[in-house]
């Protein structure tokens, strides 16, 4: 089993993200407001943008009626720096506009202060 410390828990505040490396693989470590950590491939599945240059934000929900905005999932949505596609961090990195597509993810666990990605 391959595993690697990619950062420390204190490196990322809730609602933030950073890039790191898992071997040669450029990865994106996201931390949601509940304190959980997630690891994805740091490359958008559309045209390959570096996702760490995008933003973590909320969603304007899929429950909305025409003309209504309900801002929700704050800190749980990753938006690409180029075309702005939205990916749900807590739902396997699935794309909001097309949940069949997702950003490939990696296993992650925390030991003491270490954030470890493993296969």
């Amino acid at each position: 089993m391959k595993e690697q410390v990619v950062c420390k828990t204190t490196d990322i505040q809730p609602g933030e993200m950073m890039e790191s490396y898992f071997g040669k693989q450029n990865v994106l470590i996201c931390r949601t407001p509940d304190g959980e950590f997630y690891a994805f491939m740091n490359q958008c599945n559309h045209q390959g943008a570096p996702l760490h240059r995008g933003m973590i934000c909320g969603a304007t929900t899929d429950q909305s009626e025409p003309g209504e905005y309900h801002y929700c999932h704050k800190g749980e949505i990753l938006r690409c720096p180029w075309h702005g596609r939205e990916f749900d961090i807590k739902n396997e990195g699935r794309m909001l506009a097309n949940p069949d597509k997702k950003i490939p993810s990696f296993n992650i666990r925390i030991e003491d202060e270490k954030v470890i990605v493993y296969k």
Partner: peptide
């Protein structure tokens, strides 16, 4: 433009 950084690529 309702993207991440307006008219430009955020990066």
């Amino acid at each position: 433009q309702p993207s991440v950084a307006g008219v430009d690529r955020a990066d």
